[in-house]
Design a protein around this nucleic acid. Sequence first.
DNA 1: TTGTACGCGTTATCAA
DNA 2: TTGATAACGCGTACAA
Lengths: 348, 348
Amino acid sequence: LGKVSIKDIAKVAGVSHSTVSRALSGSPLVREETRSRIKQLAQEMGYYPSAVARSLVTRRTLTIGLVVTSVTDPFWAEVVGGIEGIALERGYSVLLANSNRERQRELAVVQMLGEKRVDGIIVAASRVGALYRPVLGELGVPIVLINRHSEEKEPTMHSVATDNVQGGYLATRHLLDLGHRRIGYIADPEDLSSNSDRLRGYRQALLEWDLAFNLPPDAGGSTLVVDGNGQLEGGWHAMRLLLAASAPVTGVFCYNDLTAIGALRAIREAGKKVPEDVSVIGYDDLAMAAYTDPPLTTVAQAKREMGRQAMEMILQLIADTAPVEDIVLPGQLVIRESTGPPPEYQII
Amino acid sequence: LGKVSIKDIAKVAGVSHSTVSRALSGSPLVREETRSRIKQLAQEMGYYPSAVARSLVTRRTLTIGLVVTSVTDPFWAEVVGGIEGIALERGYSVLLANSNRERQRELAVVQMLGEKRVDGIIVAASRVGALYRPVLGELGVPIVLINRHSEEKEPTMHSVATDNVQGGYLATRHLLDLGHRRIGYIADPEDLSSNSDRLRGYRQALLEWDLAFNLPPDAGGSTLVVDGNGQLEGGWHAMRLLLAASAPVTGVFCYNDLTAIGALRAIREAGKKVPEDVSVIGYDDLAMAAYTDPPLTTVAQAKREMGRQAMEMILQLIADTAPVEDIVLPGQLVIRESTGPPPEYQII
DNA sequence: TTGTACGCGTTATCAA
DNA sequence: TTGATAACGCGTACAA
């Protein structure tokens, strides 16, 4: 591996190494005959050009850094798939950098990406540490955030996202339209922006109907918004709390599908039925959502598409020919069977 | 970014660039005072060492290539998580390479990893193309295969796997012990080795009980082994076929949990109950397995652990101090509620 | 303890 | 159409 360089080829071919370089990179400044002879030779000698040497002089690595909090989350896995697809297609490689939600690691990760001289960075992470952001900015490479607004507008930061406010509104509105009036929300406190946006959409919908949310118990209400963790267990646990309330909800909007699936289990274990006793709606439209019992109503996000767009955007940013606009994709309500009218509306 | 090099620092500090190099890499051959002065300066000037320049001379990139067919599969996502964890911990980066099951891409991917001069390659893919393997070998870097035996023993190829034969046996044996005699297997034809190993374990268990499998219809039997695709839809579709048989199975062993979850849906849609009418057992023990209805009995694989071990193994191989042994982890039966005695054994 | 000089494998800029 | 020669940013023998 890498034991043979263009100089070696040059020696054998009886030409200078620059001629070899030109021949191999398809420059028109080589006689056709020498070109083919050299290419042939390169083949035989098992030559692999060294991207690292090339990068040193071209100052481009054709590599982008991909920061993700967890590939394990099916939502992000799908996004990563989209990114990777376009990357390979365009001759780019993807350097994976898992920050694992640990502050300490975030710095190490940015440091690493900087040293590796990536041409751009995509941050596919629900949470972008506060101290993290300035460091990212100083790297001076284009950055695309997925599903996060870059609140403070920095020149190198751009974003691809779905409209989480609209999505949250859509979900809640769906439950309201079915007749629900006590609607809960299971949040993901880990996730700053997409969670708060969905929550905002939820509130917005409730306000349209003059409904209160999250009244403190001493004000006669009970808690409607409960924290999960964006994963199965969190949804399960939060739903148990919701079910234990004195006046339980009839409908629940969950931060994401994993949370919703956790909630489904809690409801099942409490001996209640979905959607007869309580309606559940998720977010993401994972493949799994069509396979739960009952199939999950949810707000679909174009996961792969977001990944693709983010990668295309990074390439645009790197090319730096035209200004690029942030992208906001709409969410879409997918009605399956986990939502229905509340008990009091049902014909008995 | 990268606008400042050690030469720049050297100029400002009034020393040679080699002194700067030494100071920054913590060589003892520098006076304490100059070292700290240089470090200070580097900090202020926003210096980031260039990994690409360094790699050119050290001939190591501290990067490993990770070939995966689909990050989207939760099983592999988990494995990747394990790999990434150890990698970061040991100062290594991971270059992602999705072959997407397309033969054409596999070559492009290997080519890319070669040019990027990765120090090693981990193949976390169910299918390793035949023509793929020799190319990988020629790269001359250590290679670790996950969940695949390297049939033809090549010097640079090693593997970390679970014992799929044992796992398949465990699953089938569990159903047999419960009293099942007509047991189906939903396969994954995409996946050569792990699928055929699990199938072998299945057959082995059946043979112990003198049971036939997959009798051709004209021989009086019906099909017990049906192809899925390792994903939800495949399991669903295959289960429908199984249910439509004249003498349907009472128990099904599925290639993996996704397949099993697909099967659960098909059974539910057919108006049958799990496990009263038919028992279902999966493979992998995904987080999701505890959240299905009913919770899924399955054969657990130490997913993250496999990833970690593979990464450790690659590091050992790179260090090349001691010979390394292939690793085979045992599968473990996790009994939940999707398996029970067959209908004829049940108290009515 | 520090500096000089060279090499890592390419691309790029001149001349020839 | 080709060949010297100089970068690119860093590590490291060797000399001082």
